[in-house]
């Protein structure tokens, strides 16, 4: 049995997959709510079809709002249960060491797409700087998700309240909320594609992917991928 290191507790795992499920549904329903030739991502066929499926755009909106509120409620619940974990997560995610992390990020991007030869051709050392609990790629996406998520949730709430409690004087806010909601989702989605590939498809992160079910990673994985963290926990164990 390889040595295992605990990485996520049960509430972390729950919120990750809960979030994933919500995002998937919100994205599917949300894209269906955009119907304007200048902006809708896949043309008007998709929203049309989806709306017909649920019996009209109003129903689709209601579903989207329902899931959105459930998503927000899920996070509130998570914060209540595991506030410490959330604080740890945020501290790790936003702790960026510019020199090391930027170099890691750039090199990693080239490595993953063009390969190490490209780096060598540029006269650079293809080996990556050591990373902590999260690598810079994870941090970048997590940052985008946290900031984007807050924007999405806040603008979502504004839109939800628009035809319930807000008056005409709030129209400007609501209109900007629509725009920011759209932009934030777009940006997060761009990151999400990479995240999904790296975590679920790319073989090198397979242990990390598994840890989103089991909560633990093997010692070797931790050592190679999160050396600084491994150093810390190894020191602590001794």
């Amino acid at each position: 049995m390889p040595r295992l290191h605990k990485r996520h507790d049960r509430s972390d795992i729950f919120i990750h997959w809960f979030n994933a499920a919500c995002w998937l549904l919100l994205l599917l329903t949300g894209v269906g709510l955009i119907q304007n030739p200048a902006i809708d991502p896949f043309g008007s066929g998709y929203p049309e079809a989806l709306r017909n499926l649920v019996g009209g755009g109003g129903n689709l909106l209601a579903v989207h709002e329902g899931i959105g509120l459930a998503w927000i409620a899920g996070f509130v619940l998570y914060l209540l249960v595991n506030f410490k974990g959330a604080r740890f997560f945020l501290a790790e995610v936003f702790a960026v060491s510019p020199g090391r992390d930027m170099a890691w990020m750039l090199k990693k991007m080239v490595l993953m797409t063009l390969g190490p030869k490209a780096l060598k051709l540029l006269g650079m050392d293809p080996s990556l700087p050591d990373q902590g609990y999260y690598n810079m790629g994870q941090k970048a996406f997590a940052q985008a998700s946290v900031v984007g998520g807050i924007v999405i949730a806040a603008t979502g709430v504004v839109m939800y309240l628009s035809d319930r409690t807000l008056g005409a004087e709030a129209s400007g806010w609501i209109s900007w909320a629509v725009t920011l909601h759209f932009i934030a989702v777009g940006l997060v989605f761009a990151g999400l594609l990479v995240h999904v590939y790296m975590a679920a498809i790319s073989p090198e992160e397979r242990p990390g992917f598994k840890s989103m079910f089991t909560g633990s990673v093997p010692d070797g994985y931790a050592k190679h991928h999160h050396r600084l963290w491994w150093n810390k926990i190894s020191a602590g164990e001794e």
Partner: peptide, 25 residues
């Protein structure tokens, strides 16, 4: 943005789908 206001191809009316409109203005 949502097509809550649309021109009904069948009748040529400009319709507001009140269920879809959120009042963004």
């Amino acid at each position: 943005p949502t097509g809550a206001t649309y021109k009904d191809p069948a009748t040529g009316e400009v319709v507001i789908d009140e269920t879809l409109c959120i009042g963004c203005g």
